[in-house]
Amino acid sequence: MIEFEGAEVRYPGGVRALQGVDLRIDDGELIVVVGLSGAGKSTLIRAINGLVPLTSGRVTVGERTLPGLDRRALRELRAQVGMIFQSFNLVSRSTVLNNVLMGRLHHVPLWRSLSGLYRAQDRELAMEALELVEIVEKAYVRAGNLSGGQQQRVGIARALAQQPSVLLADEPVASLDPPTSHVVMRYLQQINRELGITTLINLHFLDLARAYADRVIGLRDGRLVYDGPAAQADEAVFEEIYGRSLTADDVLEGQGGL
């Protein structure tokens, strides 16, 4: 379970990215967070694994509560929360397998990660994670040689190799074309269903949000402005969240030109 209580984030310079957010997420939910860019989606997600520290309020993930964790406890929390990034964040010169093994870093003794001599069981986990996103045949290929969609699947595998109980995805399809976007979203949905991993996905396409989410959370100017089942999130709701009428840029199918 993840719980936000009066969570606030104020960046140096005065921008208030999150303001008084109260939110409760149950285990196994698939939640899509929507909002315009700058609405605080990214901050909300990064507050969960402490990449962005709260300036006031609290976030509880399982039995750990931020802020107030020492460095060690914070790393334990992060190990339990997998993360997927818009620009994949793979080391392009390293092999796919070595990238996925980064998901094991918390569980591996330092001398092993420094020398690159991972245990057989860690390699096995990484291979299994690659199988789950059906890209294991590229295990020894340099990550930089893959297409965008393939790289994002490797990114998912890296998060899965952590054996996480929570998965965070920050605009996972924003750098991909529409067909590939659906492939990646389907993998995320399958993982949520089959492994029961609580999943939070930031998106700005409302059709994708409706198609894959159980529950939609809307943010505007750092405030929670919508929280309800995806089925009820119709266009009026999205206009409310965005604070303007919808355009072709707000739906993935409108991106045919990409």
Partner: peptide, 20 residues
Amino acid sequence: MTRASVRGSGARAAAQVRPE
């Protein structure tokens, strides 16, 4: 989390060949 948690679908895994 148990070790089995990464292996979601056995069927999908079986259809793939791990490279040498």
